[in-house]
């Protein structure tokens, strides 16, 4: 048992390695970038990737180095995805366990609010919130977080309600346990697997949502690079300089994949019933 169980799970380790790779990239990007990420170079516009010029991933329509911009943009993407998920998960889970545990009127009230939020398509809701709040990084976090609230509320409520009817809850009560003990010792740990899977999915969807917002011009504003607004800029020159779209796209895909793999692995690791399988 010296080795943490998560390291025995190949899927989780693969996900972790990918995420670790991006985290290292962020740390490096703070101190060193191959080129200045927003320095334009009219002589080297839309140059294809090559070792000779030093532009490993080529340059975009303003002659900016694509690799440097991806590195700079990775911190934006990762920070937004983690903080938006944390924001949405915290509020959503609190709402959900409150609704599920208390039931009755509270349940009805909270879940109807969640239903109203659910009735908007998530991108539309995020666009709406961005339009109201204005375009800056913090507002992207809030917008994506708000989109997540009803999802987490519904998942945690469902988990709490299905667990509440278990006899072990009654057993705990007959053993003198109070409400908060039952909630935090018995109900929450058992409701973690679906919530963790949701968190990992949300982390990856947040990257996509942030990219979509930036692509539409509502998220991170140029010249500050983000993977979404890089794609947005690449749209016009994609046919003659495909590297401007391929590399940011690849970055999005791999990071999303990393989070999904980690989530899958974590679910298996955290469920004692699956521990000795495989």
């Amino acid at each position: 048992m010296e080795k943490p169980r998560i390291l025995k799970n190949g899927i989780a380790v693969t996900g972790l390695v990918i995420i670790l790779f991006y985290i290292i990239m962020i740390i490096v990007s703070v101190f060193w970038l191959p080129f200045d990420s927003s320095a334009m170079d009219v002589k080297h516009v839309l140059e294809s990737p090559s070792f000779k010029t030093g532009h490993l991933f080529g340059t975009d329509e303003f002659g900016r180095d694509v690799l440097s911009r991806i590195m700079k943009g990775s911190s934006v993407s990762l920070i937004i995805s983690i903080s938006a998920t944390a924001f949405g998960a915290l509020i959503g889970i609190l709402m959900g366990i409150w609704a599920g545990f208390l039931g009755g009127r509270w349940d009805n009230f909270i879940m109807r609010i969640a239903d109203i939020m659910f009735s908007f398509p998530s991108l539309l809701l995020a666009i709406f919130i961005m339009a109201v709040l204005g375009e800056n990084t913090y507002n992207v976090i809030i917008a994506v977080g708000i989109v997540y609230i009803p999802q987490f509320a519904r998942i945690s409520r469902g988990a709490i309600i299905s667990l509440k009817s278990n006899e072990f809850v009654r057993a705990a009560r007959s053993n003198g346990a109070g409400d908060s003990y039952i909630l935090f010792r018995h109900l929450l740990p058992n409701s973690m697997p679906p919530i963790i899977v949701q968190i990992s999915l949300s982390l990856s969807v947040a990257i996509l949502l942030e990219s979509s917002l930036s692509f539409l011009g509502l998220g991170i504003q140029p010249p500050e690079p983000s993977w979404g607004n890089m794609l947005s800029g690449a749209r016009k020159v994609m046919m003659i300089a495909p590297w401007t779209a391929i590399y940011p796209g690849l970055a999005i895909v791999t990071l999303v994949l990393g989070f999904n793999l980690l989530g899958d692995g974590l679910r298996d690791v955290l469920d004692p019933r699956l521990r000795n399988v495989r």
Partner: peptide, 28 residues
């Protein structure tokens, strides 16, 4: 104290046998 009908749902699947038996003592 109660002995429950269903031995599958009356034990929290995330607690070890020793912790399950000790739980009432720990609460009190």
């Amino acid at each position: 104290q109660i002995v429950f009908q269903d031995p599958y749902s009356s034990l929290n699947p995330r607690m070890r046998a020793g912790d399950l038996i000790a739980e009432p003592l720990r609460i009190y």
